[in-house]
Amino acid sequence: MSESEIQKVVVQALRKQRHDFINHLQVIHGLLQLGKGQRALDYIDELAKDPRLISDALEERPSSTEEAVTDGNQRR
């Protein structure tokens, strides 16, 4: 995989992670606007336990991104 292809895969993974993060912020914001502070805290607690949220963006697409990065690092 070329370096350009690796960059595209990484950018795609980061865009997905950013999209998901913004969605979570919108949920929290909405809960707070509705006066549901405890529910917002519970939601944050749930997110903190989600291994997909804590993991590296590259781990979201192990079949493509991780292999591409590994391959790219071996070429250097």
Rank of each mutant, 00 (worst) to 15 (best):
Q17T: 08
L47V: 02
H29Q: 06
V69E: 03
R76L: 15
Q17W: 01
S55F: 00
T70V: 15
K36C: 13
I6L: 09
G37A: 15
Y43S: 02
A13D: 14
F21T: 10
G37D: 14
D42C: 00
E46S: 12
P51K: 07
A57L: 00
R52Y: 04
I44D: 01
S63L: 15
D20E: 15
R18M: 09
I28N: 02
Q26T: 03
L32C: 13
Q33E: 13
S55A: 13
I44E: 02
I54T: 12
R15E: 15
L31C: 04
L25F: 05
F21N: 04
N73C: 08
Q17H: 04
P51C: 02
L25A: 03
Q33G: 06
Q7Y: 08
A48V: 00
I6R: 10
R61E: 15
N73A: 04
N23G: 11
R15T: 13
A13I: 08
V27Q: 08
S4W: 08
L32H: 06
R52F: 02
H29R: 03
K8T: 14
I6M: 11
D20M: 13
Q33N: 05
A68C: 06
R61I: 10
V69C: 04
E60R: 05
Q74S: 09
Q7D: 12
E3M: 09
L31K: 05
E60Q: 02
I44S: 00
H29E: 05
Q74H: 07
E5G: 09
R15D: 13
L25N: 04
I6K: 05
I54Q: 12
L14H: 07
A68W: 04
Q17A: 09
L58V: 10
L58T: 12
E5L: 12
R76V: 11
V69S: 01
E3C: 06
Y43A: 02
K49C: 10
Q12V: 05
D71Q: 12
I44Y: 02
E59C: 10
D42I: 00
L53M: 10
Q74R: 11
R18D: 07
V9A: 14
K16C: 07
A48P: 00
G30H: 09
L32F: 03
R61S: 14
F21E: 06
N23L: 08
A48F: 00
V9K: 11
Q7H: 11
A40F: 01
L14T: 07
R52N: 07
D45A: 14
D50L: 00
A68S: 12
E66Y: 00
H19G: 00
K49A: 14
L14Y: 05
L34N: 09
R15H: 12
L34A: 15
K16H: 13
P51T: 06
S2L: 05
P51V: 08
E59V: 13
S4D: 12
